[in-house]
Amino acid sequence: MSVSETASVHAGLPRILQVRTKILKKNDELAREMRAGFAAAGVRVVNVVSSPGAGKTELLTETLRQLRDRGAAVAAIVGDLETDNDARRLAASGAPVRQIMTHGLCHLEADMVQAELAAWEAEGLAVAGLQTLLIENVGNLVCPTSWDLGESLRVVLMSVTEGEDKPLKYPGLFNTADLVVITKIDLAEACRFDRAAALAAIEQVRPGVSVLETSAITGQGLDRWLAAVQ
């Protein structure tokens, strides 16, 4: 069909609207605003992402406990599809914790975090008075990639039990990491964990990124980790 025939069918040439807009623009803009607010208030916000079972909750519970022992004002938000089990685990540290139940959504979005912060404020907790806010994302190595939560540090966890090539399987997410933490390092020997292979895989998808090794059980590596999130 020629252009003129098309025109006669549609009684007028088709119009092209040039949009060139990011599809997640709304989230990006809110996250940018939130990041500016956190920075102005001096709140360090850490978005922790990993596969389910990599040890996010265990590490963050220990993190909250130790930072509180040091006198730091800390709090945490945790996302899961269902249950508030993780919030209860994290709250055992004594820190304020809020659970987001996503009911099927596989990641957290900036407005969900914003709503929890507002709920805290309504309860009398001054978010601007926090030193560190930990956000435990939904266990997922795909979708959290694209959703900025306004964090100042994005941490991707991988445990020694889940295979050294995880970064190669999920390059998109690992590529957005500001810091990679290898967890459950106390199990390294039992799992025949190949450290060199894991580091090489991380380097392939995020050249130059810092890598820490931790065990929330033995406390190995926690000093450097705490320094990174404080």
Binding site: I16, L17, R20, I23, V205
Partner: peptide, 29 residues
């Protein structure tokens, strides 16, 4: 992957394209 120069093998994380998720245009009648 790897995020490295295909010519000289230098690893680089300086991504200039490939993260887009954009609505480019809409054709209307």
């Amino acid at each position: 992957t790897p995020l490295a120069c295909p010519a000289c093998r230098q690893p680089t994380g300086d991504i200039r394209q490939g993260q887009e998720l954009e609505l480019e245009s809409i054709e209307l009648s």
